[in-house]
């Protein structure tokens, strides 16, 4: 559900040689984060947390993948 403009800015600034966000781009990001923070905290069940932990453990850089 990330808005297109936010996604575009994050893609543009990713990468070692990319320029940091302009003031206008920063304003878009700040507004997006402020909108998110105005919402109530997401309710996460135990299952959600457990699945996230398993994905972290078994992911490409997870604990299991380490030699």
């Amino acid at each position: 559900g990330r808005p297109d403009d936010v996604r575009a800015i994050l893609e543009r600034i990713s990468g070692a040689e990319a320029m940091p966000p302009s003031p206008a781009e920063q304003a878009v990001l700040v507004r997006y984060v402020a909108e998110l923070r105005a919402q109530p905290r997401a309710h996460r069940t135990f299952n959600d947390r457990w699945s996230a932990w398993i994905a972290y453990r078994d992911g490409p850089n997870g604990l299991r993948a380490r030699p």
Binding site: R2, L10, A16, P21, Q26, L29, Y32, L36, R37, R41
Partner: peptide
């Protein structure tokens, strides 16, 4: 600059994780 950019990215993804 790289630190600032990663801080921005982390702030956005943290807010999404907590509130979406």
């Amino acid at each position: 600059v790289a630190g600032i950019k990663s801080q921005i990215t982390r702030a956005v993804s943290d807010a999404e994780k907590t509130h979406l």
